[in-house]
Amino acid sequence: MKHEGKGMIKKISQRRKIVYYLLLPSIITLIIFTLFPFFYNLWASVQNYDLIYPNQRHFIGINNFIKAITNEEFWSTLKTTLYFSGLGVILQLLIGLGVGLLFGREFKGKNILRTLLILPMVAMPVATAYIWRIMFSPSLGIINYILQKIGLQGSEWIAGYNSVIPSLVVVDTWQWSPFMILIISSGLMSLPKEPYEAAKIEGATGFQTLKNITLPLLKPILSIAFVFRLIDSFRTFDIIYSLTGGGPGHASETLNINIYLNAFRNLDIGYSGALVIIFLFIINIITMFVIRRTGFEESILK
């Protein structure tokens, strides 16, 4: 009996070893590609680390963070980021919900339409950004051409100070609404049938069903989609950089673009490192807030 127990322990510990070995590759990958860059960045953010003055690197504590929050540029880029992401994600959520509900019904050509809808999402962002850039061109672009043909006045699109962010939101929405549509329509498919049958028997109208059954049941799904998309939208780089490079002036310089310019144009690794930490902090706070408010956590725990 005693002997057997020992053997069992040995077996378990052996099995455990195997588990560890199997985990090793992913742990190593995680260390190299996630943990190391993170801690390196943390280290850089408290240094005066400027590649233009490579010999002057030294510890400066939280000075980079102070520089960031006292910098007018930081607040204006943050505002631009919130404007871009807020407008974009809400628009995408509405489109996602509308088209998602449409996909909840059966109709002819549904599968083909769904495949076509995914296309913008899988297309390469930089390549599509260049096509949008040509389409947006006020003189040569097709968008203004069509607008003028139907008697409307064209816009300056990405060449205008006030129209640049809405134009970028158009591209972002074109590209990422399918993501919302997919999540929401698959969420709809997973909803239980019983409440709907009950509602039908009770004689509820379509709107009542939507408001009192579909939306409450869909809430956790919507909040997942919202949070995912929001984080992603905060980090949007390719579309903005290829279309405007942050311009005209600083009108489309989001925090992410600003970090990039500080790191790779101004070569100030320390300051941009601090901005990255602040960025991370902001995303975490917003995510937590959204999750709390939408009751996403409880619905998962239930």
């Binding site: 947006f136 061109s137 006020p138 003189s139 672009g141 300056e156 990405i158 060449a159």
Partner: peptide, 10 residues
């Protein structure tokens, strides 16, 4: 401004 193309800023 006075003789450039539309969208010259980009």
């Amino acid at each position: 401004k006075d003789a450039g193309p539309a969208g010259a800023v980009n």
